[in-house]
Structures are given as structure tokens and as C-alpha cells.
Amino acid sequence: MSPLTIDIDDLKTSFQPGQIIRGQVHWQADSTPPKACLRLLWYTKGKGTEDVGIVENVEFSDPQQNDRRPYQFKIPEGPYSFSGELLSLVWSLELVVGKQFSRQDITVSPDGHEIRLHETVLEAKPYLEGNIR
């Protein structure tokens, strides 16, 4: 077995746009891997075909069979993590070592919670103004 682990500082899983996410990744491979990288990405899931957006990709130089590396990413402005009836968007850290990979999902939104589209309390208060000319 070759465990791949992604640790996030302070065991956080929710982040606001603009915040820094940092931590350490470590792996124990069967042999020296040809390459290892960590990606910050988002992906969609639901009724539609999956889309993926890789925001940042960090290559670890000279990866060893057993290794531990620190990382740091800045969470971008968006898109926010959300969940709807047809479509959800999930943020994730993905560690790829050789042919194996591991993911750690996180949430990105202003209040740290996944936005639920069909449960939102709507506060819009439109009003008509001066439409007679």
C-alpha cells in the first residue's frame, strides 16, 4: 500500500476567497516516483459532463520514495463551492505521485459554507422608480 496524505494546517476545510491554504503532503511509494505534484483545482459534478479547472499546479522536484513536502496556495476569488439540483462545484487539493493520486475536498465561499442554490433566503427588494417620461 502506498498512502498519500494531504494535511492542511489547523485541520481547516473551509476557506474564504483570498485566504492562504497551507500544509504538508507526504507519501510512501513502492519505488521512487518519476514525478509528484500538488494541484489546487475545482471540479463540477451532477447531471452534466464534468468540468475541471486547475487553478495552480506545483511540481515537487526530485521526489523520493518516502517524502514530505510543504505547500501553500492562495484561494482565488471564485468560483464558490455550491450545490444545486443539476450541478455542484467542489474545490479540492489533488496530490499526484507517479500513477497514484489522492484528493482532499475543501469549501470555498465568503462564509465558509457551501452555497445551496435552492435553499437560499432571498433578500432582493426591487422597486420601481420614475418610469414615466
Binding site: D111, E123, L128, E129, N131
Partner: peptide
């Protein structure tokens, strides 16, 4: 014929994507 109206985009919902 012509006019204008104010509106507010809800806070706790999803932006364009």
C-alpha cells in the same frame, strides 16, 4: 415605453459561472 427599476442581487447565492 421606457422606464427603469432598481433591483438587488441576493447575497447568499451563486455568481455567474
Amino acid at each position: 415605453k421606457t422606464g427603469q427599476v432598481h433591483f438587488t442581487i441576493p447575497q447568499s447565492t451563486m455568481h455567474s459561472f
